[in-house]
């Protein structure tokens, strides 16, 4: 019965898919899931890597949360570079990460931005409570890493409950920037590197490092990889000094040797 059902599914799928697609599968090709904020730096690093290694690298860009869910549902990724350790922790719990391949590549800081020339001063986090600040945009804390850190920092500073009514959760970091650029929000909380994307916002405050868990961007090789050797080589290259210089050129801070 079960084999008959299987045959039927195979038959139907052959009707739908007229020719056999080329699955990822060669050991000279890897698919790397990358947090979208790293796009530019990763493209440059990919070129350098392909010059020396004998394989090709493909990227799929998305938000770290989406990429994580896709991996949990069986997406054929070889390497995952996340904007936050939360996703990597979850994948490790699910047993989807190849042991001893995790490397923390980058760090970041958490800052408060305001529209350029708004004149708003935030000398300390408590200043966000002033009545001139009506709306504060942050990434949706459950889905956007920067939003999760923002919430954590405000909680640790004892401000979350009082500021909560002012918080506007946004789809992603770009949305936070857009709200602040267009003054739809009076302030926003993003990573330091995100703030440099836009010249219509200015950084007025940096959260102290001890107000939130250290912000790191980890990379791992995934268990399902059919090109684990090349995948390991790529993760090693990501943590090399050469790749570090590329990341730094795009405004990221490297963890400095792992």
């Amino acid at each position: 019965m079960q084999t008959q059902a299987r045959r039927l599914v195979i038959f139907v799928l052959f009707l739908i898919v007229p020719f056999r697609p080329t699955a990822y599968g060669g050991d000279d090709e890897i698919l790397v899931f990358v947090a979208a904020s790293l796009t530019d730096a990763m493209n440059e690093i990919k070129e350098r890597f392909e010059e020396r290694a004998g394989g090709r690298v493909f990227f799929s860009f998305g938000s770290s949360g989406t990429l994580c869910r896709q991996i949990q549902k069986g997406a054929p990724a070889d390497v995952f570079v996340s904007a936050s350790p939360i996703q990597i922790d979850a994948l490790e719990l699910d047993g989807l990460v190849l042991l001893d391949t995790r490397k923390d590549l980058l760090t970041n800081n958490l800052v408060v931005i305001v529209p350029s020339g708004s004149g708003l001063r935030v000398a300390q986090a408590e200043d966000l409570a002033q009545k001139e600040v009506v709306k504060i945009a942050i990434g949706e804390p459950d889905a956007v890493p920067a939003g999760a850190y923002a919430k954590e920092a405000l909680e640790n500073l004892g401000l979350w409950d009082s500021l909560h009514p002012k918080i506007v959760p946004a789809l992603d970091v770009r949305a936070v920037l857009a709200y602040v650029e267009r003054q739809a929000a009076d302030a926003g909380i993003v990573y330091g590197t995100d703030a440099t994307i836009s010249d219509k916002v200015e950084v007025v405050y940096e959260f102290p490092e001890d107000s939130h868990t250290a912000i790191v961007y980890p990379a791992v090789v995934l268990k399902g990889s059919k090109a684990a050797a090349l995948a390991r080589e790529f993760v090693d290259f990501l943590s090399s000094a050469e790749a570090g210089r590329v990341f730094e050129a795009y405004g990221f801070k490297t963890t400095g040797g792992h």
């Binding site: 299987r6 195979i10 697609p21 699955a23 990822y24 069986g74």
Partner: peptide, 12 residues
């Protein structure tokens, strides 16, 4: 598809 035919449609 994957086990019997070696076909993987996702991400193509």
């Amino acid at each position: 598809l994957y086990e019997d035919l070696g076909i993987e449609l996702t991400f193509t």
